[in-house]
């Protein structure tokens, strides 16, 4: 019983980091890429895209806002679907 309990906890911790790490990466890298371009090579954001009046910087900025929201949605979805059942299993075992 006790070892089973510990196994379940380990499964939970591994599951959580499997979900959290890629999402964390997906949050931090694009943001620092965005900030990095502004700091080191701002002219990279100037060109207008697809024959419109929307610059690459504004386009990517708006995409980044959307991405941030989507990341939170993905996490809530994954956490409710995979993490919660694992927590319930531990609770029932207790």
């Amino acid at each position: 019983m006790k070892s089973n309990y510990k196994d379940q906890l380990n499964v939970l911790i591994k599951l959580r980091s499997k979900i959290i790490r890629p999402l964390l990466f997906l949050t931090i890298t694009p943001y620092f890429f965005f900030i990095g371009v502004i700091a080191f090579k701002p002219e990279m954001f100037s060109p207008l895209i697809f024959d419109t009046n929307i610059s690459l910087g504004i386009f990517l900025g708006l995409v980044l806002i959307l991405l941030i929201f989507i990341i939170t949605l993905i996490y809530v979805y994954l956490a409710n679907k995979f993490i919660e059942p694992q927590i319930s299993a531990i609770k029932n075992n207790e």
Partner: peptide, 21 residues
Amino acid sequence: GFDGLIYSIGFLIGWPIILLL
């Protein structure tokens, strides 16, 4: 113009961090 967007994104980027960690 664009520079306003830098702040908007900066104020938003903290939220996934709060959520995930």
